[in-house]
């Protein structure tokens, strides 16, 4: 029987080296051996993704590598997540996420979504090319705490401003995250958003940092 540390290491390395099979094997073994699934997710899968974020920041990994690492992470998550008891699943929070109308790209959006999936949030993924009102309707329907929007092009970015206003008018407490290539901190502030990530890659890096913070919180519980 492998020790917990060995399995965590195997999962972490499997994510970094985008080895889906190794991650799946370790995740299944962790379940079979009775280790706590949430711990395996946070200290194995998410820890691996943190390393991926560092490699990306250092220009050692690029988006193709990160996408493959994300696949490996999801392979493990698919095995472990169903075994995490609801109340233990982290924050029990909800997020509405999507790429804004006029934008059919969703790589960045999907990487940010991964961060919420890892953290155990309930994710309402509206997909891409999402009409502005749909974000507002979905937030109201689900009473989600966070709305995350992505735009890949300047030409679609301006729609975000309208969505933020519509949502904040109805419910000022909703936190809004913006992401996408043309979105800068300046733009996010100007539009009244609460957070931002400036590119698909930056979404990776920012998202991973958030995973890190969630892991710290988890550790303190």
């Amino acid at each position: 029987m492998a020790t917990k540390e060995e399995l965590l290491e195997k999962m972490k390395n499997g994510v970094v080296e985008y080895d889906e099979e190794a991650v799946k094997e370790a995740a299944q073994q962790a379940l079979d051996d009775g280790y706590v699934p949430l711990e395996m997710i946070m200290d194995g899968l998410a820890a691996g993704m943190e390393v991926v974020g560092e490699l990306y920041d250092r220009n050692e990994y690029f988006v193709p590598e990160v996408l493959m690492c994300a696949d490996a992470l999801y392979a493990g998550l698919g095995i472990l997540r169903p075994h995490v008891p609801k109340q233990e699943g982290g924050l029990n929070a909800q997020v509405v996420i999507g790429s804004i109308q006029g934008d059919v790209h969703d790589i960045g959006k999907n990487l940010v979504k991964m961060m919420f999936d890892v953290a155990g949030w309930e994710v309402h993924d509206l997909g891409r090319d999402v009409p502005l009102e749909k974000f507002v309707e979905e937030q109201m329907r689900t009473d989600s705490e966070v709305v995350a929007m992505s735009a890949m092009m300047t030409t679609t970015m301006l729609g975000m401003k309208k969505v933020i206003k519509m949502i904040k008018d109805k419910n000022p407490n909703v936190a809004i995250m913006l992401g996408g290539a043309p979105v800068t901190k300046d733009v996010a502030n100007l539009f009244g958003a609460d957070g931002y990530a400036e590119s698909a890659g930056n979404a990776v890096s920012e998202g991973i940092k958030m995973i890190g913070r969630l892991r710290e919180m988890q550790g303190k519980k």
Binding site: G102, G159, K162
Partner: peptide, 16 residues
């Protein structure tokens, strides 16, 4: 292509 003819915003054509 989507031309977004009903939208009030300036949106370029896309392939949904």
């Amino acid at each position: 292509i989507s031309l977004y003819e009903d939208s009030m915003d300036i949106l370029y054509p896309t392939i949904p």
